[in-house]
Amino acid sequence: MKETAYWSWFIIAGIVMFVLLGLHMAVMHLTGFLQLFNPAGGEAIAWENVVYRGRNMFFTVTYIILLGAALYHGFYGLRTILFELGLKGQAERSLTVLLWIVGIILFCIGTYAAIAARSLQTVL
């Protein structure tokens, strides 16, 4: 059942990414008429807007969920591609463990960045 669990969460991660990337697109690229989460107006990547979103709890949680979903979805896809190269039993298990370790390390770094963004200051 392990493969069923991997695949089920792979699909769920895809759906989560679809929703959150939609939000990302709306926030970052539809600023012209939506102005969502951009209180300072202008460009979405203006420093004041970035600081506002970085200090907002909703965005902190959203960034972490999106990070986890993207890492899981991407690494599962990479694992599938590598398995199709004809790896055998032990190599497949080792690769799975390696990808879990790399994924968790990247997740920790990204989570640290998302949390650290909460202490950004408007004036440098």
Partner: peptide, 9 residues
Amino acid sequence: VTRNHGVFS
């Protein structure tokens, strides 16, 4: 069918 290289491939 749920082993590696099974239905989820």
